[in-house]
Simulated assay, not measured.
Amino acid sequence: MASSSHRRRPRPEPDFQWRPVRGPLLAVAAVAAVALVVTLIVAFRPGDTSGDGQDRAVSDAGAVTSATPTVPDSASPTSPKPSATASTPAAGKRTTPPASATPSTTATPAATRRATSGTARTPSPAAGRIRPGTTYDGVATSYDVGNGDGACSFGPTSDVMTAAMNTADYETAKACGAYVSVRAANGKSITVRITNECPAPCTVGQLDLSQQAFAKLAPLSAGRIAITWSLLSPATSDTVSIRYKTGSTQYWCGIQAIGHRNPLARLEVRTGGGWLALTRTEYNYFLSEQGTGCGAELRLTDIYGEQLVVPALAVRADVVQRTGVQFARH
C-alpha cells in the first residue's frame, strides 16, 4: 500500500452547492458533437482547396513552400503550341520574345542599291560589293579613255565599250574585268567592261563611261544621266590568260588573270603546304613578295565560288599566256 504522502489530495469543496442540469447540457453537447463531425467531414473532403491551411504546405526540411506546382520554363515536347492570337501569356511562362522577334541590327544597304525582283540566281559565296542578281541605282558620266588602258592594268585596247567604276564598288580591283549592263531612263541599254577606277568625286553607284559608250545612251552634252546597272555573266569564246608583271622572277612576282568571264575573287599558288592566297593590289595584280609559288600551279576562284586550276607556267614577265580554261556562265 502506498504511503499517504503519495496519495492525490482531494480538491476543496466550493462554497456553493453545484448541481448539474442534465437535460439542457446533453442537448447542447449533442449539437456540438454533430457540428464537429460535419466540420471534420468538410475539412477533409477530397479536392477541397478552401481555407488558409490548404494554400501552403511544409517541406520535409520544415520550410514553407508553395503548394501550387511550378511550371517549367520550356514546354514539354507534347505540349501544344501557344495560340498566335493569345493576348496574355499562360501562367508561369516566360514572356521574353524569342530571339527571332528581336529587331535586326544589320545595317541596310546604301540608298543607291535595290534588290532585283524575279527568279533567284545562283548563290555567290565570294561576291563582294557587286553581287549577281542585284540592280544598282546610280549616275553615268563620261571620259576620254585614250588608248583604253586603266587602273586594272589590262593594257591598251581597241575596245571602247568600257567604263571606270567608282572607288567604293571598285573594291581594290575586285570589279576589274566585270561585264555590266547599263540602262538609262529613256530605255536604252549597253554592256560595258570595267577596266578603270573612277576616284572622288565619283560617288557610290556611279559609272564613268567611255565617251563612245555614253553616246549610245544619251548625247555627250547631257553630261550626267540617271542609270541602273547590274552584273552580267556573258557568252564568250575567250579563255583566261595569265600574265606575270614586269620585273617578276622566281624570287618575287606579280600575277594577273585576264579574260575571265566572271569577276575574279581569289588567286592562289600551289606550295608545299597546300594553296596560298596572294594579296590583290589596286592595280589588279596578285603579289608574292617572297617568291612563294612563282611559276607554280595556280587556282582561280570567281565570285560564284567556281575554281579553275591552271598548270604551272614559266615566269615570263609581261607576256600573256593562255590557259584554255574559262568560268561557267551564270
Rank of each mutant, 00 (worst) to 15 (best):
S248K: 15
R224E: 04
W252P: 02
P234K: 13
R280E: 04
Y283A: 08
T228W: 00
A235W: 05
S248A: 06
A235I: 01
T228Y: 00
S230F: 04
P263N: 03
N262E: 04
K216R: 15
G223Q: 05
I227D: 09
G254Y: 06
Y283M: 13
C202E: 09
K245S: 12
L207R: 09
E282H: 12
R261I: 00
D208T: 07
I225V: 02
Q256M: 12
L231I: 07
C202T: 11
A257D: 01
Q211E: 00
R266C: 08
R266G: 06
S233T: 07
G254L: 05
F214D: 00
G259I: 03
A218K: 15
I258R: 10
T239F: 11
V204C: 12
D208K: 14
Q212D: 14
S230E: 13
Q212T: 08
A265P: 01
Y244S: 06
S221T: 01
L276E: 14
P219F: 06
S221C: 00
S221N: 10
A235R: 15
N262R: 09
I255F: 01
D208P: 11
D208E: 07
S233R: 14
Y285T: 10
C253Y: 09
I255Q: 09
L232E: 15
T228E: 04
P219T: 02
I225K: 14
A257F: 04
Y244V: 01
I255C: 08
R280S: 07
R270H: 11
A213M: 04
T246R: 13
L209D: 00
K245I: 00
T203H: 14
A265I: 00
T281L: 05
T236L: 03
T271W: 06
R270N: 13
S248P: 15
T239G: 12
L209F: 01
Q212Y: 04
A226C: 12
I225F: 00
Q206V: 02
V204S: 15
C253K: 10
R270D: 10
L267K: 06
Q256A: 10
V240A: 13
T246M: 08
A226H: 15
R224I: 02
Q206C: 03
T249R: 07
H260V: 08
T236Y: 01
V269S: 09
G259N: 07
S230M: 10
L231S: 13
R224N: 09
R280T: 07
H260K: 06
R280W: 09
A235C: 07
S248L: 02
A213Y: 06
T228N: 10
S248I: 02
L276W: 07
T203M: 06
L232T: 00
F214Q: 05
I242E: 03
D208Y: 04
G274Q: 09
I255E: 13
I258Q: 08
R243N: 14
G223D: 05
I227T: 02
A257R: 01
G274N: 11
S210Y: 01
G247W: 03
C202K: 13
S241W: 01
G247L: 00
I242C: 06
G205Y: 03
G274D: 02
D238H: 14
R224H: 05
A235Q: 15
Y283F: 08
A235H: 12
